[in-house]
Nucleic acid binder design. Structure first.
Length: 116
DNA sequence: CTAATGACAAACT
DNA sequence: CAGTTTGCCATTA
């Protein structure tokens, strides 16, 4: 299409999508954790950027990705401002005021879960 | 190439 | 403790 975004950027985004797809149901992770796993720890913003483009990648459960304190900062980018929370609650994750409850308990760190 | 932006994060005031 | 500033790095204009 017209918005095929240049040509090669996929490389970076694909890695982000791959990790996000591996997030188990009922678990969440943070942008920074994913960035860290991809060896770009200081570029957590890039992960969020990839999520923004993930709208065409329906396999990417972007709702399981929140910021470092478990806040659903990306909810505004979903279909509605409540889609993200509803999907999380559908997986058994309690969300109050856009904040994931027991965040540290359901936090899924790829650097740890996917380590060799 | 320069400047601006962004679904973050850590440091600072 | 809440709000502001800076760093980070890829993408876009």
């Amino acid at each position: 299409m017209a918005l095929v975004v240049s040509i090669k950027n996929k490389d970076f985004f694909e890695q982000v999508y791959q990790v996000v797809r591996l997030i188990p149901s009922g678990r969440v992770t943070s942008y920074g954790a994913i960035a860290n796993y991809l060896s770009i720890k200081s570029a957590a913003r890039m992960v969020g950027w990839a999520m923004n483009a993930s709208h065409v990648h329906l396999d990417v459960p972007a709702h399981r990705v929140v910021n470092r304190i478990g806040l659903l900062t990306g909810r505004l980018h979903f279909e509605t401002h409540s889609t993200m929370q509803e999907r999380l609650e559908a997986e058994g994750i309690k969300v109050i005021k856009n904040q994931v409850q027991s965040f540290t308990l359901i936090f899924w760190d790829p650097a740890i879960e996917l380590k060799l």
